[in-house]
Design a protein around this nucleic acid. Structure first.
Lengths: 134, 134
DNA sequence: CGGCATCCTCGGCGATACTG
DNA sequence: CAGTATCGCCGAGGATGCCG
């Protein structure tokens, strides 16, 4: 068939989107921040440096794998720094870089927003659920 | 065996985490915002009301399903409003509520941060990749 | 046009076990 | 202690088709 299917058109859109992402820094970083654990790790580090296992304990439900993965990408992006102390046993500390601290400030603002407006959201949800009974 | 395995301990942690989430509004909303499309939809609406299909076009790569899903939860949370004009064909407009607009301001701040600091991030990535080949 | 139900895939993530 | 390697599952999300 000569005419494109909806799927083909959307795939084209995906390609365009990738190109768009490559040329659009902000969306790239925005996407990174949308990761479930990223905000939690940054929040956990915003009060000061933390060891690997302490981090794991402060973020309930995270697996070692995801913790490492998250912390790695954040290190790569220059958001956190990783310090290895070659004692026995080894000790590894993670800490927000200045860059990371500036970002943490913004996330804190979002968190504060969530706290102040949660009541409104809850009310809105209840109203919505009342009007749209399952 | 009487002693708990690591998995059991983490599952317990998950349960604790769920309870924590239920009692901790900010993390609940934070989680919601971590959704990939949420920030994009809010960003797309921050410049003004938009029709359903226009939204879809302004957010490359989104499927109708996800667009609807995202926009629904945002409506439920009182972040966006949905206006149906029962003409033929139907016309549906989405718009940020005042609540949504206050949130959009914060997300814009994050976006601005991303734009200002993207160079630093890029540099950090290159340095990291140079030191950690493959 | 806008939207929902259904099916199906595919990769993210958790569990487990092993190393420096 | 701080990871890495491997496997397997499950559910988010894309494709498709049908309604108001």
């Amino acid at each position: 068939m000569a005419t494109k299917t909806a799927a083909q058109r959307r795939e084209q859109a995906r390609i365009d989107y990738d190109a768009f992402l490559r040329s659009c820094p902000s969306h790239q970083l925005l996407g990174r921040l949308s990761d479930k654990w990223v905000s939690l790790v940054i929040a956990a580090l915003s009060t000061g440096p933390e060891r690997y296992s302490d981090l794991g304990r402060r973020i309930p439900g995270v697996s070692p794998k995801m913790l490492t993965q998250t912390v790695r990408t954040l290190e790569r992006d220059g958001i956190v720094s990783r310090t290895v102390t070659p004692s026995v046993p080894v000790r590894v500390d993670y800490e927000l870089t200045p860059l990371g601290r500036s970002l943490a400030g913004l996330l804190t603002a979002v968190k504060d927003w969530a706290e102040t407006h949660f009541e409104e959201v809850r009310t809105a949800r209840e109203a919505y659920d009342r009007e749209n009974p399952a």
